[in-house]
């Protein structure tokens, strides 16, 4: 038996919005300490890792780990019916055949109850190493979204490098080239600020298409963290308040 209630149901709506274009089917693992998800695309280019800690929910009860196999398009259709200010409760029995989603309006005048059929999924999992990256950048999530949108008009892959002063994004295409530098700011400006820490320089190249898909998570957080090293997957992390995160890993472009 599991039951998880989130008064701020729109957090869950935003999480599903961030996932639905990247993940077709996935197991949400309901565990006594929270909800996790790991999903990789079939081409093994991107990986999504989600954590929602139990103590971030208003009510959370889960006695043992239960994999909840979900078709993301189906979940997305149902969760769209929740209003932004609704509380959302997830409930499932131990048999794992269905997940109930209950949406309550704040004045308790409306209660919607949906049942989502679950899937028995056998999905590949990877062990995520505790990587130490050469460059760590924290920046406003809207700025990353803008960089992806603007540079996508010019080319398909972005090169990223950083100095202590700025993180630099560059693109080349048939029509020409473009670059955007996001300058680091004083540590005082926390939310809108840009911080760069660097152990050694890195110059990396990634597909803009996937990076742009990650920025669907922008509504979840005002800040985003980028971590990268030469010839390694990049980590793009959006914190979800105090309750967890959504992390995206993107395989680098490699020179032939």
């Amino acid at each position: 038996m599991l039951e998880a209630r989130l008064a701020q149901g729109n957090v869950l709506k935003k999480v599903i919005d961030s996932l639905r274009d990247l993940v077709n089917e996935a197991n949400f693992e309901f565990t006594p300490s929270g909800i996790t998800l790991q999903s990789m695309d079939s081409a093994h280019v991107i990986l999504v890792s989600l954590l929602l800690r139990a103590d971030g929910f208003d009510n959370y009860r889960c006695d043992r780990t239960i994999p909840v196999g979900i078709n993301m398009a189906s979940l997305s259709k149902i969760i769209r019916a929740a209003a932004n200010d609704d509380a959302i409760t997830l409930r499932a029995d131990d048999n794992g055949e269905s997940l109930n989603l209950i949406f309550e309006a704040p004045n308790a005048g409306r209660v919607s109850d949906y049942e989502l059929k679950l899937m028995d999924l056998d999905v590949e999992q990877v062990a995520l190493p505790d990587m130490s990256y050469d460059v760590t950048v924290r920046m406003p999530s809207e700025e990353l979204q803008r960089v992806c949108r603007d540079l996508s008009a010019v080319g398909e892959s972005v090169t990223i490098n950083a100095t202590k002063e700025s993180i630099n994004f560059g693109v080349k295409g048939e029509l020409g080239s473009g670059s955007i530098a996001i300058r680091s700011t004083a540590p005082v400006d926390k939310k809108e600020g840009v911080s760069i820490s660097m152990r050694q320089p890195a110059d990396v190249s990634f597909s803009l298409k996937f990076l742009t898909q990650f920025t669907k998570a922008t509504p979840l957080s005002e800040t985003v963290r980028l971590e990268f090293s030469n010839e390694c997957p990049m980590l793009v992390e959006y914190p979800i308040g105090d309750m967890g995160y959504i992390r995206f890993y993107l395989a680098p472009k490699v020179d032939d």
Binding site: I46, P129, V254
Partner: peptide
């Protein structure tokens, strides 16, 4: 020229 890398060359499938 470059090609798209794969995550399973970096992360171990379990």
């Amino acid at each position: 020229t470059s090609t798209q890398g794969r995550l399973d060359t970096f992360f171990k499938v379990v």
